[in-house]
Design a protein around this nucleic acid. Structure first.
Length: 480
RNA sequence: UCCUCCUUAGCUCAGUUGGUUAGAGCACCUGACUGUUAAUCAGGGUGUCCUAGGUUCAAGUCCUAGAGGAGGAGCCA
């Protein structure tokens, strides 16, 4: 008996006449009186292999139990196809049904389903072309990111997922406890007494691995984290998740310009990797996007997916300061005509999504990196500029996605960092270890956070972040 | 959390200024067809019109509340 072969391998094989075993799930079955055709997919590729069955009295019964979704094991002969849709196909000698899928109950049909419907069927949606393609692209991007950093001398660091620090300032945190929630111990002041909790203190899920990555960078020079991240914000948008994956490189002896170079080089590398390794899936996702947007007006349609990816590779990202961005926005048509919901009055205002989109999609028409933001609207750890007003932050903005990367050069001066922490009410006692790195052999360093799912949104052309992670966690949604 | 929109067959959706028996395509079943490409052609059954109230001679359609979903905003990756 031949060993089972991946459909991906078989479709590229030229060993015609070979006896093969194929296992997978039925996508469609069709046929006439004498012959049936089964499109079978095993997820190794977006392409299905065609199984041809001569109908006879022996297999008639089995065939009637084969519907979309059924799992089959087929042995037969790999032959050149006489049909026009494929080069090779399998002439079945024997078909075994491994698992039936009752068509009255199985929700996936060989037709277009809405993404919302499939979100409610997240346990089955891997079996669709779209979600199979996304899963494969997602894997390729994970691999490409590790490869990029490995090939460039970075070390991967596992930042902790449980944290005792609640001062990272990146957002609301999920609390973790083994206390009995029906009977919460209180101290004399009436506050929760964590002394009997698992860690003897309040614990949370991490909102960022950055601070820990900094510690590692100040010894290993070039490090990155790639781990799950949790934000308990009540965010209900197509680009936020309560649980997402973040890549956070941190590099000693880097300034903000080195940081921007790294961000741009890395993004271009992983996008090129997708083009080199995922073309079948990208072509499908491109067609899917065209189909989805065919009823939109021409000016509302997005650029064709593969063209868009190449476009990002071929151009330098625009780099401007916050001050320059404000000046462009202040003199822009929508601002003068008061078309922005938030009209830019002057320096110091935070940039809203509409402003970022104007800069990226209308004004520059390419990815934009904005630097040197007012210190009031950025985190305590960012390197302060000599002007006393701005910090060396950098945000990378992509079309449609908005902010895909947020980063900065870090404040390495102990006194400046300490003063800023006091100003922003960051409790010193929970951050002593962070401050100590500025006391012992401090050096300039920089890093950034890349939202992995936002990258996948961009590469796949999908519109909702809940569709690029297998099991999305969002407010009021913890199914599967 | 705020604003707007949506919820009709297993799925995708139509349903006019409120009007009598609620519609189509797909899926499914039956039949036809010598190899199809989401096969095609013919025939067949399919409904808590999201839920609870209300207005009306009459509600899928109008009003109120609730539930679920989507889009946008804020927070950000």
């Amino acid at each position: 008996m031949e060993k089972k072969a991946d459909i991906k391998t078989l479709l590229q094989s030229d060993e015609l006449g070979k006896e093969v075993v194929v296992k997978g799930w039925v996508r469609t079955k069709r046929g006439s009186k004498n012959v049936a055709f089964i499109a079978m997919n095993d997820g190794s590729t977006i392409k299905s292999i065609q199984i041809v069955v001569e109908i006879n009295s022996e297999n008639e019964k089995a065939l009637s139990n084969i519907h979309t979704g059924a799992a089959l094991s087929v042995n037969g002969e790999l032959v050149a196809s006489t049909g026009s849709g494929q080069k090779v196909e399998v002439h079945a000698k024997n078909i075994e049904i491994l698992g039936v899928a009752d068509p009255d109950e199985y929700p996936l049909q060989p037709k277009k389903h809405s993404l919302e419907f499939l979100r409610e069927k997240a346990h089955l949606r891997f079996r669709t072309n779209t979600f199979g393609a996304i899963a494969r692209v997602r894997h390729a991007m994970i691999f490409a990111i590790h490869k990029y950093f490995n090939d460039n001398g970075f070390y991967n660091i596992h930042a902790p997922i449980l944290t005792g620090s609640d001062a990272e300032g990146a957002g609301e945190m999920f609390q973790v406890t083994t206390l009995d929630l029906e009977n919460i111990p209180k101290n004399e002041e009436g506050k929760v007494d964590f002394s009997g909790d698992f860690f003897g203190k309040a614990a949370n899920l991490t909102v960022s691995g950055q601070l820990e990555a900094e510690l590692a960078a100040l010894a290993l020079s070039k490090v990155y984290t790639f781990g799950p991240t949790f934000r308990a914000e009540n965010s209900n948008t197509s680009r936020h998740l309560a649980e997402f994956w973040m890549i956070e490189p941190e590099v000693a002896f880097f300034d903000i310009n080195d940081d921007m170079d790294l961000a741009e080089d890395m993004l271009k590398y992983v996008i090129q990797y997708a083009l080199d390794n995922c073309m079948d899936d990208l072509e499908f996702l491109s067609k899917r996007l065209l189909e989805e947007e065919k009823n939109k007006k021409a000016e509302e349609r997005s650029m064709e997916l593969i063209e868009k990816l190449r476009f990002v590779l071929n151009d330098d990202f625009v780099r401007i300061t916050y001050t320059e961005a404000i000046n462009i926005l202040r003199n822009s048509k929508p601002n003068k005509k008061k078309r922005f919901q938030y009209v830019i009055e002057g320096w110091g205002a935070d940039l809203q999504s509409e402003h970022e989109r104007y800069l990226v999609e209308k004004h520059f028409k390419k990815p934009v990196i904005i630097t040197d933001y007012p210190k009031e609207i950025k985190a305590f750890y960012m390197k302060q500029n000599d002007d006393g007003k701005t910090v060396r932050a950098m945000d990378v903005l992509f079309p449609q996605i908005g902010e895909i990367i947020g980063g900065s050069q870090r404040e390495e001066d102990y006194d400046k960092l300490y003063t800023r922490m006091k100003e922003m009410d960051i409790p010193e006692e929970s951050m002593w270890w962070y401050l100590e790195t500025r006391k012992f052999g401090t050096v300039p360093h920089a890093g950034f956070g890349l939202g992995f799912e936002r990258l996948i949104l961009f590469v796949t052309g999908m519109g909702n972040i809940r569709d690029v992670i297998p099991f999305p966690r969002t407010p009021q949604n913890l199914e599967f």
